[in-house]
Amino acid sequence: MLIGTVLTALFAGAAALSLFWLPHDIAALDISQRSLGPSLTHPLGTDHFGRDMLSMLMAGARTSIAVALVAVGIGVGLGVPLGLWAAATRGSWLDEVIMRGNDLIFAFPSLVIAILITAVFGPSALNAILAIGIFNIPVFARVARGGALPLWTLDYVMAARVAGKGRLLISAQHILPNVANLLIVQATIQFSLGILAEAALSYVGLGAQPPTASWGRMLADAQTMIYTEPQLAVLPGLAIVLMVLGLNLLGDGLRDALDPRLRRVRM
């Protein structure tokens, strides 16, 4: 959990910093400075266009995090209310419609549809966000509903009903806070999947477009140079691995820390 937090914070910090300051301008190409090894001015060297790798990676972190974060936001914002409402009206036609709709989205191979969306509406970071975000909706709806259903059978929900509270109020006061743990853990998982998906889309040229820096694009560029400049493929890939690893470790740590069963044992 500690490692996860440190890694996540590191990338988030780099991304935040890149909003204000980068060591070098990543739009400027300087062929004379190309493919340099690590040095004081370029701590991680330069790429085949002479751009500073550290600056590229920082800007790439910004793109990855922004895409994944908004995509998770879409999933949480739409999926959680749908899932909670489906659980509150369990067995009704509404529940049925919501869950069948979910199943349908699940039936689509997500990356294929993401490719389709970006292909139709043109490749851009925004379309990548939409394409990834849509597939987050059923995930959060399922987790929210699955977590909420057992709670609805508990006596404290019954007590709230006896106290005259309606479904909406009970969902907000009793259900949501008690499924929040599950949702937070799921959010870290979807976040890391979002980063992988964004990298994959950018890699095939359907994500963020130049001059926006992106780890996936950097890898696609590096692939053409794999015989001559194999080191260019290493850093962006490592950045993806570490970021995803950090998020996953953080998610696992959060799950353990938030699991009420484990907490009860500790008390």
Binding site: S192, L196, Y203, L219, Q223, P236, I240, L242, V244
Partner: peptide, 13 residues
């Protein structure tokens, strides 16, 4: 944990 974090196309490269 590591295997999940590795993007498959990078691993392929």
């Amino acid at each position: 944990q590591l295997g999940i974090a590795v993007p498959n196309f990078w691993f392929a490269m």
